[in-house]
Amino acid sequence: MNIFNQPLLFKRISIVVSFVIVSLILWNTYTFFQKFKQEERIKMEILAEAQKELSTADLNSNIALSDKIITTNNSIPMILVDDKDEIIYANNLDSIKSLNPEYLQEQLAIMKKENKPIEISYDGKNKQYIYYRDSDLLKKLTYYPLALILILVLFLSVIYLFYSSNKAAETNKLWTGMAKETAHQIGTPLSSLLGWIAILKAEKVDETYIDEIEKDVHRLNTIANRFSKIGSIPELKKRDVVLITKQAFDYLKFRSSTQISFSFTSSDKEIQTLINEELFGWVIENIIKNAIDAMLGKGEVSLKIESSEKKVRILISDTGKGMPKKLFKQIFKPGYTTKKRGWGLGLSLSKRIVEDYHKGKIFVQKSEIGKGTTFEIILDKIS
């Protein structure tokens, strides 16, 4: 069994493995931190003994070892105080700031909170105390697990993105294959229908009937062409976007309920842009069909085209049920639908056609529950 073909199992295994790795990292770091901290404590206790021997030594004593122990401490910040808490000297602190008594008192307060003092007693009298804080190396060690966890998260994110992209690519191939096969299957009966139309014309059947059949055949041919273009880069040509949009608009207008009113307005009679007629007409139809469904067969659909110096804006509004703002982006995702029937591909395909093929933008401009929705499409205008 390949776990990469089992999404839920793969995710669960990834979570468990990640949890185990993070737990081991945190535990090992904590153990190492405590051991390192204990070693620093031992070093300071040895230094305290050296300090005691150095202070009690006479002129004939060998103080070389004690002096070396004290002078070689160049990593652990410390402050030596007397029994009255007066500072005798400080080591491994900022040399310039240490000239300021307030700075030394601040550091002493920090050291008192971090570690217990080490007492130096001279025959039970004249006690002194060494206060110290963790070395910079030990402090950096506390950030070590965070860095490892971050690396682990990044690594898992790369794996997840790789897995998701592979899955998305497979899904795209599936939809593309289905679309092309659909176009191929439609092509066979279309050829037959064209032959029957020719026979009907030869039999001198009423031209009105033949014209209507030819319109439907032309429509089926358009649908087949649209599906055949999915998955391949369509050819864009300089066309009048007003005319193409009006044709798609009128097609649904004359085939919709009389309880729906349609209005079409444009700031210019003709606006040129690079466009694929069949695919862009599909976008307009998809949005208008969604508008009709949202109004439950009764309401108003309005389409307005606005032109600026470099852009063309197409606004499609309805008086339907509207939607909350959180769905503005979600409705363009493949498979999302609020209908009992349908696969939720219309708006997803529309977004791909507009943004990937035509390098434009499509989005929900505004929507209000119970009042309706406005979609906006933006394309580049050419002269």
Score class of each variant (00 low, 15 high):
I233C: 05
G187N: 07
W196T: 13
Y163H: 03
A198T: 11
P234A: 03
L193K: 04
L174I: 03
M178D: 02
Y209P: 03
V241P: 01
L161T: 12
T188P: 07
Y163M: 04
L243A: 08
L141P: 05
E181T: 09
K139C: 00
H218T: 09
I149V: 08
K180R: 08
A183Y: 08
L148T: 02
Q128P: 04
S164K: 15
D216G: 00
Y143V: 00
A179R: 06
I151L: 14
H184I: 06
R226Q: 13
L146H: 08
G195H: 02
E207V: 00
W175Y: 10
T208R: 07
W175T: 01
L200H: 11
I159G: 04
T188E: 14
L150W: 10
L156H: 09
L190C: 12
K127H: 01
R133C: 00
E212N: 07
L236A: 09
E181M: 08
F162L: 13
E207S: 09
D216F: 08
P145T: 07
L174M: 05
Y131W: 09
K140T: 10
K127P: 07
V153M: 14
S232H: 12
L200M: 15
L141Y: 15
I130G: 01
K238V: 06
L156G: 01
I199G: 04
R226D: 12
Y209T: 13
E214M: 13
N126G: 06
I244T: 07
K140N: 14
A179E: 00
G177L: 07
N221S: 14
E170H: 06
G195Q: 05
T182R: 05
N126K: 15
Q128N: 00
L161E: 07
L150P: 08
A147Y: 15
V205A: 06
P145N: 04
L156I: 06
L236K: 09
A179K: 01
I233E: 15
A168K: 09
A147D: 09
Q185Y: 11
A224R: 08
T182M: 10
S232R: 06
K167S: 01
A168M: 11
T176Q: 10
L200A: 12
E203R: 05
A147Q: 08
D134C: 04
G195M: 03
Y163D: 01
A179V: 00
I186R: 09
A169R: 15
L243S: 11
Y129Q: 03
L190I: 11
V217K: 14
L174E: 04
L190Y: 02
G187C: 10
Q185R: 14
K125I: 06
S157M: 08
H184K: 11
S192Q: 14
R226Y: 12
E214L: 09
Y160C: 09
K139I: 05
W196V: 12
L243F: 14
A224L: 04
A168E: 12
N172V: 00
I197A: 03
I151P: 03
Y209V: 01
K125M: 06
F162R: 15
K229D: 03
I199F: 11
A147G: 06
D206Y: 04
K229F: 13
I233W: 11
I199D: 10
Y163W: 00
